[in-house]
Write a protein that binds this DNA or RNA. Structure first.
Lengths: 332, 332
DNA sequence: CTGTTAGCGCCTTCAT
DNA sequence: ATGAAGGCGCTAACAG
């Protein structure tokens, strides 16, 4: 049987569609008897409003578009979990668009969202933020995650990458490490670059610039594995500071396989504090970023903007990661 | 500035909206000069079609609704990753609806999807499938994940839970374990129940029913931790078979803290083979379910159904998990 | 309180 | 090849 529309309900209840609409939406001005009849009919016909049509006429979709880069594992699930929770509690659903490919697919995804979402949260740590922002409709609120809109049209939520990386590097130095290698994220990724900068700065501060080196990674487990292999081929540094936990995990696995003891022969640190960081044995020293919270805050910001609470808040908020000293680095 | 619509484009190009529409959608019957002019104008005005209106008139949204239970960590990210990849490659986007709460929120989410999605994939391992299916519009294709529609209106993708659990239990027995405790998922969850059944069946088969016991868990890390504590309070069994990896991980962490050696004093096994299973030290023996693939297949099925390829395939497909023997169980 | 009318933005016959 | 008109399903004035 075809879809039952509000007209079917109206006809069956012998009223106009307007009345049906009013009754269905709980408007006051409708006689209680009429309303009851309408609701009864709707129930009997199993009527479900057509959300698409509804949002067209209301120009309100109750959907938030989420554009994410090809995210890996727990970072992805955590951030989506945070967003979803907040969104649902505010009556919104999430329209997802992972962008693995280049800007080609991304613009396409962005276009598909026009007229379908009330707001968006965009996370694009690499690539040209300039270009991305250009494809954003300027009339739908958006918030940027880990990348700032150069023209500052949209608020941004940033992680204090550099500060965090500095803190970790200092910790490493304080526990006696001198020769430290940083396994970075892919160059061009803003998080990656900031973390590298923090590392380099802290090393310089300590007069250890000549002891610092950087291996470019990919934010994936594999990148960590590769870096570890390269390290084991030469002589081991005092510590490895990976730009994220996934790579730290990869390092750890490779190191374990290679019979290197951590932190006995080598200290190891990560960044993010994904749940798996605690599963490692020994548990990974890392920087805790409350990922789910970050997602929730992003949703909070957009919904607020959608509801008109515009402009008041600060344009960009920075989240400070916390140093989580666990067992892969030596005690002080 | 307000949103630019197709009418703006038409007016600016001095044609009717019909022509504009045709040109924009690449229809043949439009003079190449007119088309060029229209496209030029659209470009200049930065016109982006209103997807909502478009799908209303085409009754085709190119969106697939995804309803998931409160999923944890990597299981969630893996399945969404699998779905998204397949969806994007077929020109669809994903509308997410995690249902944490009871059927209250779920029905609401389901209703919000009516007239907005072309198809849905629903995963509802616990709760009454009967009821859920009742809330599905019978005119939009759907596929069930890990739960079958009792009335068989929709195809289902199932994991061979019982077979898998049996295989693992047999492995445990073969490596010399006798007293085995199974930490189950929450009762009522179909995956949980089937896994428990498989465990019990294998124990009975081996004449070890009196050595079998079950502790009810929650599929979360915490459930594993609690179970381990309970175990350590009494005398240790030969093995613990957790109904999923998250709980196995919880067990492992608690056991490690309690100074119990695995698999020395106790064998440990999980189910799912989430990436973190390999991070443990020793690495977790488990049953590998290709989660991402499961998601991809689900999308494949719905899109196929949407495109009319209806009815041909088998009504339910079962995925067999593979036994991954790693280091938390003793070698044969 | 209720019905009529006019869109929301787009696509598609049906004429021309 | 192009334009006019109707409709997708629903809601919001505007009259009665």
């Amino acid at each position: 049987m075809a879809n039952v529309t509000i007209r079917d309900v109206a006809r069956e209840a012998a009223v106009s569609v307007a009345s049906a609409s009013r009754a269905l939406n709980g408007h006051k001005s409708v006689h209680s008897e009429t309303r009851a009849r309408i609701l009864e009919v709707a129930e009997r016909l199993a009527y479900v409003p057509h959300a698409g049509a509804r949002s067209l006429s209301l120009s309100r979709a109750h959907i938030i578009g989420v554009v994410l880069p090809a995210l890996h594992g727990e970072f992805f699930s955590e951030i989506v979990r945070g967003m979803d929770g907040e969104a649902v509690s505010r009556g919104y659903q999430l329209l997802l668009a992972n962008m693995h490919m280049g800007s080609e697919e991304t613009t396409k995804a962005l276009r598909m969202m026009r007229g379908r979402v009330d707001g968006m949260v965009v996370m694009a740590p690499h690539g040209d933020p300039q270009e991305l922002a250009g494809h954003l409709q300027s009339n739908v609120p958006a918030v940027m995650l880990n990348c700032s809109d150069p023209r500052e049209r949209f608020p941004a939520l940033l992680i204090e990458n550099e500060t965090g990386a500095r803190a970790m590097t200092r910790h490493l130095i304080a526990t006696g490490c001198r020769r430290i290698v940083h396994v970075s994220g892919p160059r061009g990724n803003i998080d990656a670059d900031e973390r590298t900068a923090g590392f380099l700065a802290a090393m310089a501060e300590a007069g250890l610039s000549d002891q610092a080196s950087v291996i470019e990674g990919d934010f994936l487990e594999e990148g960590g594995v590769k870096a570890a292999h390269r390290l084991m081929a030469g002589d081991l540094p005092d510590a490895v500071f990976a730009a994220n936990d996934m790579m730290a995990i990869g390092c750890m696995l490779a190191l374990r396989e290679g019979g290197i003891s951590v932190p006995g022969e080598l200290s190891l640190a990560g960044f993010d504090d994904i749940p798996a960081a605690r599963y490692l044995n020994p548990a990974l020293t890392t920087l805790r970023v409350n990922i789910a919270d970050l997602g929730a805050r992003a949703i909070q910001l957009v919904t607020r903007a959608i509801d008109g609470d515009d402009g008041s808040g600060p344009l960009s908020t920075r989240f400070s990661p916390d140093l989580m000293i666990r067992a892969t680095t030596r005690p002080l």
